[in-house]
């Protein structure tokens, strides 16, 4: 990887924001007695799938994520919200080490998947990414047929021993992603020929095809129209029966609709974490309240 292509939302928006948090607060006239650098809410969960402690991420000189502690439970949907540049996408990309591909990105702290350290130098990143799959902001089907798009993951991981098995995996994945009925007659046609929403469901099917345990979704609906978005949200709900899902979103309605718990990020800090119902009806932190009521962000 030679270029530092970073999505606008994963890179810190400005160094000033990140280095002068205190000045930012007082200028907003917010309650400075309650420092947003302390996370409000209960971090621990029963039945932990992933556990992150004191995670710091920096791109070169700019620190994007500051000491975030967060647990994710099995089969839960956790939403991460916050204004642009708050580090939520960066944090998400740490969970399957996608940040490895970005030059100058340094991650510290402890990130565990089922008690296994993700950033253990001895750990091979290939099986990790098979266990923690990722769906991106912009649908990015490979320029291959729909079938090959889904079959790609199982093939590189050797999950299918025969053509029949592979067919089965492809069909199951497309079914789970709710794309089977639309795509079954055109499996040999290029995936890039689908509509935006279908492409995103294809990408989800592609991700499920390698049977991950956790699926990370980085604003999966931000490039889609409302109907396609509703379709994906429905899908997320169905998928949560089998997968643990962490979703970054800019839409608070979406977070409210699909997630069980919500984490609010601000300037690289995890400000508040709690059950989605609580967060949206009764936020504990002033900043969270301001954000969800649309006062800023």
């Amino acid at each position: 990887m030679t270029t530092m292509t970073v999505d606008s939302n994963t890179s810190p928006q400005s160094s000033q924001e990140a280095t002068q948090p205190v000045a930012d607060i007082s200028s907003n006239g917010l309650d400075s007695s309650r420092d947003y650098r302390q996370t409000v809410g209960k971090i621990e969960v029963a039945n932990t799938k992933m556990s992150m402690r004191d995670v710091n991420v920096s791109y070169g000189d700019k620190q994007a994520v500051f000491g975030v502690d967060l647990d994710i439970a099995k089969n839960e949907v956790i939403a991460m919200i916050g204004p642009s540049g708050c580090g939520k996408s960066t944090f998400l990309r740490c969970m399957n080490r996608m940040n490895d591909t970005i030059e100058g990105c340094v991650v510290s702290g402890s990130l565990k998947l089922d008690d296994q350290d993700i950033y253990d130098p001895k750990l091979d990143v290939v099986p990790l990414r098979a266990r923690v799959g990722m769906v991106f902001q912009k649908p990015n089907p490979f320029p291959k047929s729909i079938y090959d798009n889904v079959a790609y993951g199982p093939q590189i991981h050797g999950l299918a021993n025969s053509k029949v098995e592979l067919d089965e995996i492809v069909e199951n994945s497309l079914r789970k992603a709710g794309l089977w009925n639309e795509a079954k007659d055109r499996l040999d046609q290029p995936g890039t020929g689908l509509s935006g929403g279908q492409q995103q469901r294809l990408c989800i099917a592609r991700t499920i095809a390698v049977s991950p345990e956790v699926i990370l979704m980085d604003e999966p609906c931000s490039a889609l129209d409302p109907i396609a978005t509703a379709r994906i949200e429905e899908l997320i709900d169905e998928l949560s029966a089998n997968f643990t899902i962490a979703i970054v979103t800019h839409s608070m309605q979406q977070a409210a609709r699909v997630s069980h718990r919500t984490a609010y990020f601000h300037l690289g800090y995890l400000v508040e974490i709690g059950d989605t119902d609580d967060i949206f009806t009764n936020p504990k932190h002033r900043l969270t309240e301001d954000y969800i009521t649309g006062r800023f962000g």
Binding site: T101, F136, Y152, G153
Partner: peptide, 25 residues
Amino acid sequence: QSLRDGSFGLGATHSETIRRVIIPA
């Protein structure tokens, strides 16, 4: 870059990504 990300995100190695995604594209 999104195609590379997509392939890496599925757990493909760099050479698999080049051979099976980037070169065909």
